[in-house]
Design a protein around this nucleic acid. Structure first.
Lengths: 202, 202
DNA sequence: CTCACTGTTGAACGATTGTATAGTAAAACG
DNA sequence: CGTTTTACTATACAATCGTTCAACAGTGAG
């Protein structure tokens, strides 16, 4: 036997990178099995680590869930910023609303689990309040810019709230059963509603 | 010791009645702790029975959840039938949408849990498809009747889909954090949107 | 009253839950 | 190279999970 050329028994990486991987694995588990699939066993198996790492890096499973929520909203806001600042048409505006990766059907169970937790967990509630305000802020700005371009004066915050709720509702119904409502028809109905609301405040 | 006047050790009631009570207890558990609170221990403690009864009356916990879902939708449709057939104003129509007991904040976790299950469980998916169709049917009829009264011609199914989604979305946001959106403001935004959509198709 | 029926109990089962912890090993530093 | 640090593994733990099952007991029929 010459030199020891054995492969390392485990990969030792920076804590931030490990945390990111555990969050990613957790999202996959949530997507697959909802909050019931969000177990230490599932997550660590998905991440390819042993079960001790969640406690080591997050302190508890609940803390991991909170970190997961924060991480998702960071990305949602980033994606929004990457999108065009001022949509030129209602089509563009609606597309922007539906564009986000996290509004894919795969994430239905993720959002359902998070919403359920937010309603119960005070820490997440505070986090949500902040994030939702930021989210609505940007949507309102986009609406405001779009309306100004058309020479229309609107209450952008009200319309942003309507639009967000409508998109959430349509997305939800479409996720739950696509045969009842396709994504394309959901967008269509959204465009139609938005057009009506924008001209009504003319 | 004279006659035996001991209180019975348990209450022996008709299977249907027992099933109803177990479903009621299950709803309470779901409301309190989401799908994580939906455990045999919790449910039977809430219902005041021993743990064997769920298997005996439903076969399994999952079957109980399916029965619960069916039971809720029966009541939702009943409530809708009890409501005025043809709303005379947009206010009445919107009030009708928000009126249902099951759109109380207490039921947020119940719906989140059920939606998560529907998306996964094929049996519930079939059940949902049927129920949602019935639900939309009645909403569409109400819209149609209302519009006819106003002398307006509308595509009542499209508008029903929009209205249901909007109500769901607004209700959701309002449940998750009331400080971001109150119920009264949600109704207000709903009225405004509905009015705009109805006049736009004029 | 006696018997059959069955709604109901409660203990027991193995599997799985989240966390604590002792020990291992990879990487950084001198 | 040797030492220190700490990311990491792996086991153990009590608690709880859903389900099974044998025995109990309330109720109506005969």
């Amino acid at each position: 036997m010459a030199k020891k050329a054995t492969t390392p028994k485990f990969e030792r990486i920076a804590p931030d990178e490990r945390r990111a991987r555990l969050i990613e694995a957790s999202i996959a588990c949530l997507a697959k099995g909802g909050i019931q699939g969000f177990t230490v066993d599932n997550i660590c198996h998905e991440a390819g680590t042993s079960r001790g790492l969640i406690t080591h890096h997050f302190g508890s499973k609940n803390a991991l869930l909170a970190a997961l929520y924060a991480s998702i909203y960071v990305k949602v806001l980033e994606n929004l910023d990457r999108a065009e600042a001022t949509p030129q048409s209602i089509d563009e505006l609606v597309d922007m609303m539906f564009a986000d990766t996290f509004l894919s059907r795969d994430y239905l169970n993720v959002w359902l689990a998070l919403w359920g937790e937010i309603a119960v967990n005070p820490t997440l509630q505070v986090e949500h309040r902040k994030n939702y305000a930021l989210y609505r802020e940007r949507i309102a700005r986009a609406i405001s810019a779009f309306a100004r371009g058309k020479g229309v004066k609107v209450d952008s915050y009200d319309i942003a709230t309507i639009l967000i709720s409508l998109v959430d509702g349509l997305w939800l119904e479409q996720c739950i059963d696509q045969s009842l409502l396709s994504l394309e028809r959901a967008k269509d109905l959204c465009r139609r509603t938005l057009a009506a609301v924008l001209t009504a405040t003319n």
